[in-house]
């Protein structure tokens, strides 16, 4: 697994701003801001979905990639975020500016309640335990239909504008979702180079050894889980105001849980760029497949996808980041290093 172990943190990134590998992504990130001005609306829509799903994948990467804890239940936090925000808004008229923080608080509580016992297990067992929670929540969200609308679904409505975050145009959502995605990436980088990050990596490599050197593994796994829950819950809240329609299959969705892990796996597990590249590839391709390709070749192309996925895992287990490293290096070589006078090297 490709993980830089030296240096780091956001401040470290700031001092290395003159290097191509730092300023090129920043330039690219800035360029994305102009997408709504030039791209057709459908692309903007797909990017909004990419950012929302990508935030979940970033969250998954913290606990699954850094910490090595293979959660397949992270959509629980998507559901908590979405339903809390949506219900508070439509039934109680509470703005998502308040609703999302409440949703986050609930997600934190849920992460602790789930994580505290679940982290007594590890490996496959942890994955299965999180599936159990998710499936249980799915049934409960159908059962308590007075609250959630059950399988008939729940419409998120309210007055338009910044207070309720309801807009008829897509641009505000684009910038909100993009800000969320960038923010979650910043959180991921900060975590990666913080004590929590180092401890999570140590736990991933060898939990017993980590414990032997005095790391409270249960505590740090829980920290990682809580952080991933927070990011996923915010994504759920934004999903609620953007899509405006919630139902158990899209909220407490095992598909979505697996997609988070799959995005990270395809991109490069435990890397910074992995969930970003994974999300930018997978979400648009999914949208393309359903919205453009349509049903006729559906079955056969999915057979093809399955075969490619299997081959990919067998022959390119480190993910696209590793495979495409040489491309990045070419570009870096071509781009000049800019000195601001403060370079440490």
């Amino acid at each position: 697994m490709a993980v830089e172990t030296e240096g780091g943190g956001l401040s470290e990134y700031a001092t290395r701003i003159g290097e191509p590998r730092i300023y090129l992504p920043i330039a690219l990130a800035a360029a994305v801001l102009f997408v709504p001005f030039v791209a057709p609306g459908f692309y903007v829509h797909v990017l909004i979905l990419t950012f929302i799903t990508g935030t979940g994948a970033v969250g998954w990467n913290i606990i699954g990639g850094f910490g090595g804890q293979f959660s397949l239940g992270n959509a629980v936090f998507l559901g908590i975020g979405g339903y809390t925000t949506g219900i508070l808004m439509a039934d109680y008229g509470i703005t998502p500016w308040v609703g999302i923080p409440i949703a986050v608080a609930l997600a934190v509580v849920a992460a602790v309640v789930i994580g505290y016992p679940a982290f007594k297990t590890s490996g496959h067992y942890f994955a299965l335990a999180t599936i159990a929670v998710l499936e249980g929540m799915w049934f409960l969200s159908v059962y308590f239909s007075d609250l959630t609308g059950g399988s008939t679904g729940y419409s998120v409505t309210g007055d338009g504008g910044w207070l309720m975050l309801l807009f008829d145009s897509r641009e505000p959502y684009f910038y909100l979702a993009y800000a969320l995605f960038l923010g979650s990436i910043a959180v991921m980088i900060a975590i990666r180079y913080s004590r929590i990050g180092y401890y999570l990596l140590a736990i991933r490599e060898n939990q017993d050894a980590a414990e032997a050197v005095g790391i409270d593994t249960a505590k740090y796994k829980l920290y990682g889980f809580v952080i991933s829950a927070i990011l996923t819950a915010v994504a759920g809240g934004l999903y609620a105001v953007y899509i405006n329609f919630l139902y158990p299959d899209s909220m407490f969705s095992i598909d979505e849980s697996i997609l988070y892990a799959l995005i990270v796996l395809i991109g490069g597990i435990g890397t910074i760029a992995g969930p970003i590249i994974g999300a930018l590839l997978m979400v648009p391709l999914e949208e393309y497949t359903t919205a453009v390709l349509g049903g006729q070749y559906g079955a056969l192309s999915y057979v093809g996808y399955g075969v490619v996925l299997i081959l990919f895992i067998i022959y390119a287990p480190d993910g696209l980041v590793e495979r495409l490293r040489f491309v990045g290096e070419r570009i870096e070589d071509a781009a000049p290093t800019v000195s601001f006078g403060g370079d440490e090297d």
Binding site: D255, L285, E286, Y302
Partner: peptide, 26 residues
């Protein structure tokens, strides 16, 4: 209800196939 990623992501990996098949689906 559990399509279990049948329509989600992984989809994706095979852009090539998607491209070849074109868009007669729509």
């Amino acid at each position: 209800r559990r399509k279990f990623i049948q329509t989600t992501g992984g989809a994706a990996v095979l852009a090539g196939v998607a491209g070849c098949l074109g868009d007669d689906g729509a």
